[in-house]
Design a binder for these strands. Structure first.
Length: 356
DNA sequence: AACACGGGGAG
DNA sequence: CTCCCAGTGTT
């Protein structure tokens, strides 16, 4: 016999769940997979248009596998966590090459694919293949911690193991796909992080957190967020109407995205002139002038605050110090994926040239 | 086990 | 501001 929780959840889903999303009820494992990768640590509203854009451009996994890598990154631009995009391409090509374009249909094979962990493997295998694997995402962790009144931190190995086990025990093995979708909808619509709708919740009577009036204190997280501050000074060097850009390769934020000539500092740089050592070395006595210096930009990320300015520099001759850079026409710039920090600057009207 | 990885919306 | 989102990979 199913636990009361499960029975009530399925009943709520049938009678009251009005949530609609483009991938809901989807049976094509490719489309399910794509939606799940897009939605990792990403709100549904944010990922929605990206999903539709990807499906339109790449109707099947073979379309994606054959796609130009830079084009895929360009389509991912702005969504964040760019390793997802790299792994998306890798998995598409792996399935094209090793699986003849047919998405694997066992949990173990799916979980072995790049960018797919326990959550995504459970989601795909239950939605597409009706396999009995319980999803454990932020929604499910929150619901279970509250329902059982459990204060074990969710961001620990022990916590994940505990909640995964509880989630699995609540799963109805005859309809795991429907249930997995329902519990995530329930978490998003009813058992929300803030201001959950306890007054209309079908689980209220048996919810331990509600009974003890500790709903707002659950789930518990152990790790506090540590923040870093960084100052990025981007020099946009123009030569014959073209700009120098380079792909980021370091194991750092924005890996694989493009950027301009970067000087990074752990503190603000007060005077930006041709005399500053970084520029002096860059220019090496050649004919250049500073055309404009932008306002201070600031971007708040989860784990770091980025500050910085953009400095337009016009060069009268090519700069040998920039070997390894691409020199691309301004009109071709939109083919490359840039971090939001840079596209924000590029999207603002250019300031009038000043004299420095 | 701890840390790194984006961006945006809500409060 | 802080929190958190359909988490995963690396060290």
């Amino acid at each position: 016999m199913k636990p009361d929780f499960t029975r009530r959840l399925l009943q709520w889903n049938k009678n009251s769940n009005t949530r609609v999303m483009p991938w809901k009820g989807e049976k094509d494992p490719y489309k399910i997979w794509l939606s799940e990768i897009i939605l990792q640590q990403t709100r549904v509203e944010q990922g929605w248009s990206y999903y539709e854009k990807f499906i339109a451009a790449f109707p099947t996994i073979l379309h994606l596998a054959r796609a130009n890598e830079e084009k895929v990154f360009k389509m991912w631009e702005g969504l964040g966590y760019y390793s997802r995009c790299k792994n998306l391409i890798a998995t598409a090509r792996k399935i094209a090459g090793e699986y003849n374009g047919i998405f694997p249909s066992t949990y173990e094979e799916i979980e072995a694919l790049p960018g797919i962990g326990p959550y995504t493997a459970a989601a795909i295998s239950s939605f597409a293949f009706n396999l009995p694997h319980a999803v454990l995402d932020g929604n499910v962790q929150r619901i279970i911690a509250r329902y059982f009144g459990n204060s074990t931190p969710i961001d620990t190995t022990a916590g994940r193991k505990l909640y995964q086990s509880l989630a699995q025990s609540l799963l109805p093995c005859d309809e795991p796909g429907i249930y997995n979708q329902a519990i995530m909808d329930f978490g998003a619509v009813i058992c929300k992080p803030q201001n959950p709708l306890c007054s209309t919740c079908v689980q209220q009577k048996e919810c331990e957190a509600f009974r003890q009036n500790v709903v707002s204190q659950l789930p518990v997280k152990q790790k506090a967020i540590v923040k870093k501050e960084r100052w990025l000074y981007y020099f946009i060097v123009e030569y014959k109407g073209k700009w120098y850009i380079k792909q980021r390769t370091a194991k750092d934020i924005w890996e694989n995205l493009f950027e301009f000539v970067l000087f990074e500092s752990t503190a603000a740089v007060e005077d930006i002139t041709l005399k500053m050592p970084f520029l002096k070395k860059l220019v090496n006595g050649q004919a250049v002038h500073i055309e404009s210096i932008s306002r201070m930009y600031r971007q708040q990320l989860t784990h770091q605050t980025i500050h910085g300015r953009f400095v337009k520099i016009v060069a009268g001759e090519a700069l040998p110090s920039l070997n390894g850079y691409l020199l691309v026409d301004k009109k071709q710039l939109s083919k490359y994926a840039f971090p939001r920090f840079i596209t924000t600057y590029l999207g603002e009207p250019a300031p009038p040239a000043q004299l420095f």
